[in-house]
């Protein structure tokens, strides 16, 4: 017993190091797992409020750019409204399935293999896990953590992110993933080699996932090649969104999400 205590005392520095080091390794491993990264994240109240405070200062530098973006969006929506007003009744009744909440990005990164955004809306604004996030230009990501005032988003620039997407032209669908290399493009997998592809084709969300509605723009086909087994395409999609400058986003809530989820679980 005496010797054991002596041993611990002699090596106490190494043991402390070992303990703290293994603790951080465990944290790292859990953070690489989609469903377990719950311990430390930037939606926590303290880190969230510091990010929020300083992003307010940063906001002033982008006002001009934001104004132009908003003007463009307004313009597009007005044009849409003018052209649609006649056949408005033709819009199907699923238009009310989705509810939008505006939010601001207070923290963003794109230089790592796993990037997250932090938004200034949280549980008290009825934001929940698994809601989608978009901008006027296209897809941004999916919410994975919330605190009372903030929410964390898994960006599409995250190697963990998997989103269902399709080709707008032909409705062939596949999985959108990111290889962690270039923040301007993501990869669309699992499209059959029989499908005819062309550079510049638009890729949109498929609407199968119950998180995003159909036809949210994602990007254009930049290049494509066959995978190792030569039966499926790997398509490089250049994003419509400039992921390095995100300020104002919309959070999408699918009002039927719970219903669809229970239905899915029943089938399994």
């Amino acid at each position: 017993m005496q010797q054991l205590l002596n041993f611990f005392f002699k090596n106490r520095t190494f043991l402390l190091f070992l303990m703290l080091f293994s603790f951080s390794i465990v944290l790292t491993i859990t953070s690489h797992d989609y469903h377990k990264s719950r311990f430390l994240n930037s939606s926590a109240l303290m880190s969230g409020s510091i990010h929020a405070f300083f992003s307010k200062i940063g906001n002033y530098f982008n006002l001009k750019k934001e104004n132009i973006l908003l003007l463009e969006e307004n313009n597009r929506l007005k044009a849409l409204n003018l052209n649609r007003s006649i056949q408005y009744t033709a819009v199907s009744n699923d238009a009310d399935n989705y509810q939008l909440t505006p939010a601001s990005v207070i923290k963003n990164s794109y230089a790592f293999p796993q990037n997250y955004l932090t938004l200034n809306k949280g549980e008290r604004d009825l934001i929940k896990e698994d809601m989608g996030v978009i901008t006027s230009k296209g897809l941004v990501g999916i919410i994975d953590q919330t605190s009372s005032k903030y929410a964390r988003v898994i960006s599409i620039l995250n190697t963990k992110s998997k989103i269902n997407a399709k080709l707008k032209k032909s409705n062939h669908f596949g999985t959108l993933e990111w290889n962690g290399e270039n923040h301007r493009s993501v990869q669309l997998h699992d499209i059959q080699d029989l499908v005819k592809l062309a550079k510049g084709d638009t890729v949109v969300t498929s609407g199968y996932s119950s998180i995003f509605p159909e036809n949210i723009p994602i990007g254009r086909i930049e290049s494509f090649q066959l995978n190792d087994t030569k039966d499926l395409y790997i398509i490089n999609v250049s994003l419509f969104n400039d992921m390095t400058h995100l300020r104002h986003v919309h959070i999408i809530e699918n009002l039927d999400f719970e219903e669809l989820k229970t239905l899915k679980e029943k089938n399994e």
Partner: peptide
């Protein structure tokens, strides 16, 4: 730092 940067425990390690 990990808490701020969403990097799990990499900075701590």
């Amino acid at each position: 730092l990990d808490l701020f940067l969403d990097s799990g425990g990499a900075h701590a390690a």
